Amino acid sequence: DESNKPILLPNESQSFERSVQLLDQIPSYDTHKIAVLYVGEGQSNSELAILSNEHGSYRYTEFLTGLGRLIELKDCQPDKVYLGGLDVCGEDGQFTYCWHDDIMQAVFHIATLMPTKDVDKHRCDKKRHLGNDFVSIVYNDSGEDFKLGTIKGQFNFVHVIVTPLDYECNLVSLQCRKDMEGLVDTSVAKIVSDRNLPFVARQMALHANMASQVHHSRSNPTDIYPSKWIARLRHIKRLRQRICEEAAYSNPSLPLVHPPSHSKAPAQTPAEPTPGYEVGQRKRLISSVEDFTE
């Protein structure tokens, strides 16, 4: 099969070098950035008060330690540790928490760990991170309901609301924008112990962030949302095809390698009803078989 044979790379090609550099910018793992907010007593309706908090309760602090690993920003190499735009020179604080497994990295933009500057009256330095995160974990210690939209931002799609209760338990629920209701189930609340709260809140936030990324990708319907490693695979396959075309153009005697095509017509299947918005969006999480067989 010609399409699977190794090909020689061009010795000097600026377009090839640019493509390789672009490939280096696509990590081999999925990345997520999640905002974390603490809401104190009497702050449920005040964005400024929430963003001005420099610490929270003892249970909130224990919750943070379970979310991930504490890292010092100045020691991080952005090409190895995903920071979601946090500055490593102290502009966004000294520490944050991050978490990773074999296929993804997540960083938490924690408002109480970011510096509260006197010259920044409206807390814009914090909002440029927190307001651009799709998902926020809100530790609501106010005793009042927290409403979506209290923290203004164009991309605040989903809130994971943590409400501490007695007996070391917590109520965990989801809020989302109306255009996200087909992807996020907000109907079920959970009672979770303090011990298990970081794991549950983190998983709910990661799932909500993946759904938000799919939702946000609708602005470019021709580019369905893939995982990062599938995006790398697609980029490599496009690069291979372009090299083959350039080689055939410079030397017409060489065969032009095309991806294999299936001449056999697909079997006719009964027509199915058109899937609704929710089903269609969830299918976009699934990769096409052509990603692996071309």
Rank of each mutant, 00 (worst) to 15 (best):
D1K: 09
D1E: 12
E2P: 05
E2H: 08
S3W: 07
K5W: 14
P6Q: 09
L8G: 10
L9N: 09
L9K: 07
E12Q: 09
E12I: 07
E12L: 06
Q14I: 10
S15T: 08
F16S: 06
E17Q: 13
E17M: 09
V20Y: 07
Q21G: 08
L23M: 05
D24P: 04
D24K: 03
D24E: 07
P27S: 05
P27Y: 05
S28Y: 14
D30G: 05
T31P: 03
I34K: 00
I34R: 01
V36R: 00
V36S: 00
L37D: 00
V39S: 01
V39C: 04
G40I: 00
G42I: 01
Q43W: 01
Q43G: 01
N45L: 04
S46K: 05
E47T: 02
E47P: 04
E47L: 02
A49N: 04
I50M: 03
I50S: 02
L51F: 07
L51S: 03
S52L: 04
E54P: 03
E54W: 03
E54G: 04
E54M: 05
H55V: 12
S57A: 01
Y58S: 06
Y58A: 10
R59M: 00
R59Q: 00
Y60F: 04
T61N: 13
E62N: 12
E62Q: 09
F63K: 00
F63M: 06
L64V: 05
T65K: 09
G66M: 02
G68M: 04
G68C: 05
R69H: 12
R69V: 09
R69P: 04
L70F: 05
I71Y: 08
I71E: 08
E72N: 09
L73A: 14
K74W: 04
D75T: 10
D75E: 10
Q77D: 14
D79S: 06
K80H: 05
K80N: 08
V81K: 13
L83Q: 15
G84L: 04
L86M: 10
L86Y: 13
D87I: 01
C89L: 05
C89W: 06
E91M: 10
E91F: 10
E91I: 08
E91Q: 13
D92H: 07
D92K: 11
F95S: 04
Y97D: 03
C98H: 15
H100G: 14
D101I: 00
D101C: 02
I103W: 13
M104Y: 05
Q105H: 13
Q105W: 13
Q105C: 11
A106P: 02
F108K: 01
H109A: 03
I110G: 03
L113N: 04
P115M: 03
P115E: 04
T116A: 08
K117Q: 08
K117G: 09
D118V: 11
D120W: 09
D120F: 12
K121H: 13
R123L: 14
D125L: 15
K126E: 04
R128F: 09
H129K: 11
G131P: 03
N132W: 04
N132H: 14
F134G: 01
V135N: 00
S136M: 09
I137R: 00
V138D: 01
V138F: 01
Y139N: 00
N140M: 00
D141H: 02
D141F: 00
S142T: 02
S142V: 01
G143N: 03
G143P: 01
G143S: 04
E144S: 09
F146S: 01
F146V: 05
G149D: 13
T150W: 04
K152H: 08
K152R: 11
G153C: 10
Q154R: 14
F155M: 13
F155K: 14
V158Y: 03
V160W: 01
V160G: 00
I161L: 07
T163Q: 14
P164G: 00
N170H: 10
N170G: 04
L171Y: 04
V172A: 00
S173Q: 15
S173L: 04
L174W: 02
L174C: 09
Q175R: 06
C176T: 07
C176E: 01
C176K: 02
C176N: 01
K178R: 10
M180G: 02
M180N: 01
E181H: 13
E181V: 09
G182T: 08
L183N: 03
L183M: 13
V184L: 10
V184Q: 03
V184H: 02
D185Q: 05
S187Y: 03
V188F: 10
A189K: 10
A189D: 12
K190Q: 11
I191L: 07
V192C: 05
R195L: 06
N196S: 05
N196C: 06
L197P: 00
L197T: 09
L197G: 01
P198I: 00
F199H: 02
F199K: 02
F199E: 03
A201M: 01
A201D: 00
A201F: 00
R202D: 00
M204E: 03
A208W: 02
M210F: 06
M210H: 02
A211G: 02
V214K: 01
V214A: 05
H216K: 04
H216L: 07
S217V: 09
S217Q: 09
S219A: 13
S219E: 13
S219Y: 10
S219F: 08
N220Y: 06
P221K: 05
P221V: 05
T222R: 08
D223F: 07
D223L: 07
D223C: 07
I224R: 06
I224P: 13
P226T: 08
S227C: 08
W229Y: 05
I230G: 11
R232D: 13
L233C: 06
L233H: 07
L233G: 12
L233D: 15
R234H: 06
H235C: 14
H235V: 15
K237H: 13
K237N: 15
R238G: 15
R238Y: 14
R238E: 15
L239Q: 09
R240A: 12
R242K: 12
C244G: 13
C244K: 05
E245C: 06
E245N: 09
E245M: 11
E246F: 05
A247F: 15
A248R: 07
Y249G: 08
S250C: 14
S250H: 11
S250Q: 09
P252K: 10
P252E: 13
S253T: 12
L254P: 15
L254E: 15
L254D: 15
P255C: 08
P255A: 08
P255G: 12
L256M: 12
L256H: 14
V257E: 15
V257D: 15
H258K: 13
H258N: 12
P260C: 12
S261E: 14
S261T: 10
S261C: 10
S263Q: 10
S263Y: 06
A265P: 11
A265M: 08
Q268G: 11
Q268H: 10
Q268Y: 09
T269N: 12
T269G: 10
P270S: 11
P270K: 07
E272F: 07
T274E: 12
P275Y: 09
P275G: 11
G276V: 07
Y277H: 14
E278Y: 08
V279N: 14
R282E: 14
R282M: 12
R282V: 10
K283S: 08
K283I: 06
K283M: 11
I286Y: 10
V289R: 15
F292N: 15
T293F: 04
T293M: 05
E294G: 14
